[in-house]
Nucleic acid binder design. Structure first.
Lengths: 212, 212
DNA sequence: TAGATTGTTAATCGATTAACAATC
DNA sequence: TAGATTGTTAATCGATTAACAATC
């Protein structure tokens, strides 16, 4: 048995790759797929794919490949996403409203159920069937509804304070879009930084130019 | 000399970490900072920080640490971001408009200079000083303006076709926000997938619950 | 049976960390 | 000088890949 299984903690790399396999499977129409086929979608190696999958059991058939539906459901279980997740948006500015307007996460069973803000002009509004409440109502809202994840899309100036409050309300998962870095003992925080992605791309461009 | 220097290609991991150091330095007010101090911000190891930095030269002073300003400028040079980058937004829907409205990237010298769409109701509009053009005008626009990066925020149904067109217009850097996976020989593509982040967080939550 | 592809081992490769002499 | 911290080596740790017997 693998160490990470004893620890109940999947390494991030494996989670990320499994998510990618999961997405490929969701788009696959044939009933069987080979590790080579999955790998070719991702520019990786078939051994990598087989190894990742075999960590959790024997899901394939030699000579044939993997049953797409079966593997899909198994990865869902492994990732722990074989359930629905309720998400609230904290801060309904540019990015926050974009998330409220977007309906694409539902396919993966992430349901955005409400928005929260402090701006009186926004409170009470309904965007894409999702109501915006005053942030002070969050505590009550969490008591009456299941809330798994809060997406933090407030300006970084107020982010720290608000994230603490959100954790205090009992929300366990935080997707932090603000520039602020913060870790809390009571919950799991994942930082999401668009600037870093721009920098990474710029760096790749700058480096590639050298070789041309 | 390191292999990646001969190849003119920084490994992604190092780029990401250097970007993080860069952001910490940008917020540091003292004039010197130790590797231990940088590491503590990131939950990493001081040896890691020193090793990363020392790959590119000797920037520190034993017993004192690193000169913040000097190191900041050096990382900027190493990452190749000691210049401005012009960015266009392709697809001015929810996410696209949010990017157009946002001004925070300017600090890192990423200038969003225009948006492109096919919707007649949007074309001609000006958001946050940024004009929206018809996508057919992109080719011409690229001839008259320096465009380094295109952020693709169109629905995934049309993403492949549009990304090919964008590459054809001569734009070398593509930040792909759509669910479509595509690689092109002529340009550098970086995929950016919010769903994967949600899945990663959900997985962390699901796993942590097991241990509690 | 012949061809294809799995699951798994062993080998390789790369990344992280501990430790410490050198230096301010 | 004493204390602090760098730059770098060597040791450890983990991740990827090649290879192939087993199996459909």
């Amino acid at each position: 048995m693998k160490l990470f299984m004893l620890k109940n903690k999947l390494p991030n790399k494996i989670v990320t790759r499994l998510s990618l396999y999961y997405q490929i499977l969701s788009k696959t129409t044939s009933s069987y797929i080979s590790s080579q086929n999955i790998a070719s979608h991702l520019g990786t190696n078939s051994a990598q794919v087989r190894k990742d999958i075999s960590l959790f059991g024997q899901f394939g058939i030699p000579g044939k490949g993997y049953n797409v539906k079966k593997l899909y459901l198994n990865i869902e279980k492994i990732l722990g996403i074989d359930k629905s997740w309720n998400v609230v948006i904290i801060g309904c500015g540019n990015l926050g409203s974009a998330l409220l307007k977007y309906s694409g996460f539902k396919e993966q069973r992430f349901n955005i159920i409400a928005g929260f803000d402090i701006d009186k002009n926004k409170i009470g509004k309904v965007i894409n069937n999702r109501k915006i409440y005053h942030i002070d109502e969050l505590k009550n809202f969490v008591k009456k509804n299941v809330v798994d994840i809060a997406a933090i899309t407030v300006p970084s100036s107020s982010a720290k304070e608000i994230i603490k409050y959100v954790a205090d309300c009992g929300i366990k998962g935080i997707l932090n879009f603000s520039a602020t870095q913060i870790k809390l003992p009571k919950c799991i925080t994942l930082k999401f930084d668009l600037t870093i992605e721009f920098i990474r791309l710029a760096c790749m461009l700058a480096n590639s130019k050298l070789t041309q």
